[in-house]
Write a protein that binds this DNA or RNA. Sequence first.
DNA 1: TCCTCATAACTTTTT
DNA 2: GTTATGAGGA
Length: 747
Amino acid sequence: MTPGLEVLQGLNPPQREAVETIQGPLLIIAGPGSGKTRVITHRIAYLVRVCGVSPYRIAAVTFTNKAAREMRDRLQRLVGGSSNSLTVGTFHAFCALMLRRDGAPIGLDPHYSIYDSDDQLALIKRSMELADLDPKRHHPRSVQSVISKAKSVLMDSGALAQQRENYFEEVCARVYHHYEELLSRNNAVDFDDLLMKAVQLLQESQDVRERYQQRYQYLMVDEFQDTNVAQYRLARLLTGEDRNICVVGDPDQSIYSWRNADIRNILSFQQDYPQAKTITLEQNYRSTGTILEAAKSLITANGMRLHKDLFTENEPGVPITVHEAYDEQEEAEFVISQISQLVRENGHKPGDCAIMYRVNAQSRALEEACLHQGMQYRLVGGIRFYHRREVKDLMAYLHLLHNPQDEVNLTRVVNVPPRGIGAKSMQELVRWSQRENISLYTAMGRIAQARQQGEQCPAPLPSRAASSIANFCDIVQRLVQQSTQLPVVELIDQVLEDSGLRHHIQSGDDQPEERWENILELRETAREFNAEQPPDGLATLLERLSLVADVDSYEDSENSITLITLHQAKGLEFPVVFIVGMEEGLLPHSRSMDSETELEEERRLCYVGFTRAERRLYLLRAFRRGFMGSSGPTMASRFLREVPEHLIAAASRKVPAPAVRIPAVSTSYGASGASGWPSNKTPPAPPAAPRISLQTGDLVRHSTFGEGVVMECTPSSDDHEVTVQFSEVVGVKKLLLSFAPLEKLEG
DNA sequence: TCCTCATAACTTTTT
DNA sequence: GTTATGAGGA
């Protein structure tokens, strides 16, 4: 056999065709569990080992760091050491590096800071002040989203001003203009800029463009359905004459349109490259027949879709379990006890099991249940590590040292820990620096210098404030000097000491141990790639840390179950999957329910959840769910109804219509068993009052109207309106559940 | 200037 | 149930 040809072994015909198609544009539509990553990595291995292409000339861009890392690991195994010279990374990381190395033609200083969305928001608020806008009238967040959206389609403020469609966009364009100026004055770029400026660079500098095009002869784009216009444009710009671009995606798993991902890129691709070959991967290797069929039924409810015919040769497996709990506590307790049972009786490990939910807030009840039942768990995401205050503070110091023009980060740390430079002093200082037309950092430098030379403070500041500022400035200047010489870990230690941050955190009364742990974790991360020493160590560290999400620190552990949002679960797989909160308003989310396209995205999200499961799938809902403090009744998710009845375990019950359970006046049926409640016996302690649950079709008895059938049960403010068909004489009555003397009949 | 307390406002998903 | 903001007092 020709050396290297074993990379073709074990591939099915379409997979093999995808691997062997190396010339020209290629679109791979890859259903869930169809071996997508396998195809990408084997295709790269094929290029390197069979076709003799230098790894240096191959780039693979992904959407998340996690995907990039996984790809890198697999390639390492397939092509060995030379995989190091492959370019594998996220769009953002790729752009950040390109801009740092080659950003000069578009006037970018390589020491630029990268602002995350929080920094972005802070700067937008400042821009709104400059534009004389009342933040109460226009929500900074909405402005942020308009600006970000504009950037994602490569519109600058001028373009937005021209193409505005309403008054609000006009306002945003004004803010955007100030925002652009502030960014450039701070020598900073936001996430969107990384893409937009990279495109700008490639468009405007022929030299840079040609260099990159020559270098990258083969480009692969993973999760293509999640790319936005800027990312697609970037991919096209990187693809030179050879047009060896291969994009892989699944429109049915597009769940990031809110982040301006544009499924239409797939259509554009076919238009832009009419000669492109399309290969569809339809065989699923992951899930049981039952799970796949449920997922297929669900997704066919969506309108516009690219046709796909998924199939599997796997066993049908066990039916899907649908469980209806009373509230989220019971839901959580059920899930955890179910997992314990699977571990005891079915030979599963806790690590096989994942619980997925729509919003992070849902993890709380699950965590409590884990604690309660002594189950180890790993929470993915949540309050993100890099968003924690102490972590952001330390990061802000590091950013400041690397880029002293960065006023967002300067402002953030100037009084952390408190050193007597309050809002008032800063306001004065800003005003003075503007009059003098110098940056904040320079202004501070002047004050410090005057002080050293025993001169009077040049700025109109109280002497106390002036000396605090001079002090702070001395510290920062000293650290800036050290930043180019010390390895990053030592620099971090120095910062922690000199700034007083360590003392501040450790002596604070807000969970000092935990916060210090977080600092140490950051320090540990820095130590891990300490191999990259100064002078570039700090830049690399900042770049990486600015672009990582927490999924990256995700590690398998066979003793812990996984708690994860549906979004983050994309790309993962688990033998056992629980999806909780299958309720209208949660999944689909209430903010997506009034638009058909958004609703379809919710359905795709649900589909992503279903297709993560290999062997067992559990769908859960609660009749009542806590909602910002108070709790209220819920309606079953329409997605539950889209799962064919015959795939669901007989023991579990499926709700065809809204059902509620609230305290009732009638007590005649006593214990909870009588209400037809699922058999698990864990009603949480407090609810002493008997409860009644009604759903369409239930038989009830009313003290005056007699027996009837429930037609409908809808929640109204604090109560429930029940429509009941009584005898022909009585007719249909609408009743309020809390007042009506209703009693549920079994049968 | 800084800290405490109260109030409001808000929660989708993330590079 | 949370976190961001504001007023008022030390």
